[in-house]
């Protein structure tokens, strides 16, 4: 049974999550992938404010396809998270509480997740048409010139994901693979 979670996540909800839990997320998430992370990083370096309040928020690593007329959004599945690893510890330190992506995270990110009591979710990579059905509204809020890589504010409802890294150091990739290794 999947757990229903409201976004932004509250502290207790994060503490209750364990690696391997299936969740359905509802509320606000912000999209950012390679180019947007690079820009956020530059703003932080320059001591400038970020284009959205990052505290307690969740970032979704995605670059959606363009919406057809009548669509809220095009296909919108997760991209590989490790490309954002360089920037993630800094964002966690600023209060980011959750990330949705796919694939491995670096040791630094895993450590920062534990230290800052955050959570890393994976969505099913490539299930992008299916996932798009959970997205109710879209608004580009920063870096319009980046197109698909701009920061979009999404309202999601019952967005399916799985907890990979929890605040206790749990790692569902490691655990899942160990169970089936021959």
């Amino acid at each position: 049974m999947a757990k229903k979670l409201k976004l932004p996540l509250d502290k207790q909800a994060i503490r209750d999550l364990r690696a391997g839990d299936r969740v359905l997320l509802s509320g606000t998430v912000y999209t950012a992938r390679d180019a947007a992370h690079q820009r956020l990083y530059e703003l932080i370096q320059e001591g400038k404010p970020l284009p959205f309040p990052i505290e307690n928020q969740v970032i979704y690593y995605v670059g959606p396809t363009p919406a057809k007329p009548g669509q809220v959004i095009g296909s919108a599945g997760p991209t590989t998270s490790s490309r954002m690893d360089k920037y993630t510890p800094g964002l966690l330190e600023m209060g980011l509480k959750g990330m949705i992506g796919k694939g491995y995270r670096s040791e630094e990110v895993k450590k920062a997740i534990v230290e800052h009591e955050a959570v890393y979710f994976a969505a099913v990579g490539g299930a992008a048409a299916l996932i798009s059905k959970a997205i109710r509204s879209v608004e580009v809020i920063a870096f319009h010139d980046l197109g698909t890589e701009a920061i979009h504010k999404l309202e999601v409802e019952n967005f399916p994901a799985i907890v990979i890294h929890d605040i206790y150091g749990g790692d569902f990739y490691e655990k899942g693979v160990r169970a089936f290794q021959q």
Partner: peptide, 27 residues
């Protein structure tokens, strides 16, 4: 978990074909 993921991939491919939308956002 693996079975559920494969089921989702089948459903995803069916939606994509039916609605003429990309099966993956990385086209």
């Amino acid at each position: 978990t693996g079975k559920e993921i494969i089921s989702q991939l089948i459903e995803n491919a069916e939606i994509a074909a039916r609605e003429y939308m990309p099966m993956c956002q990385d086209t």
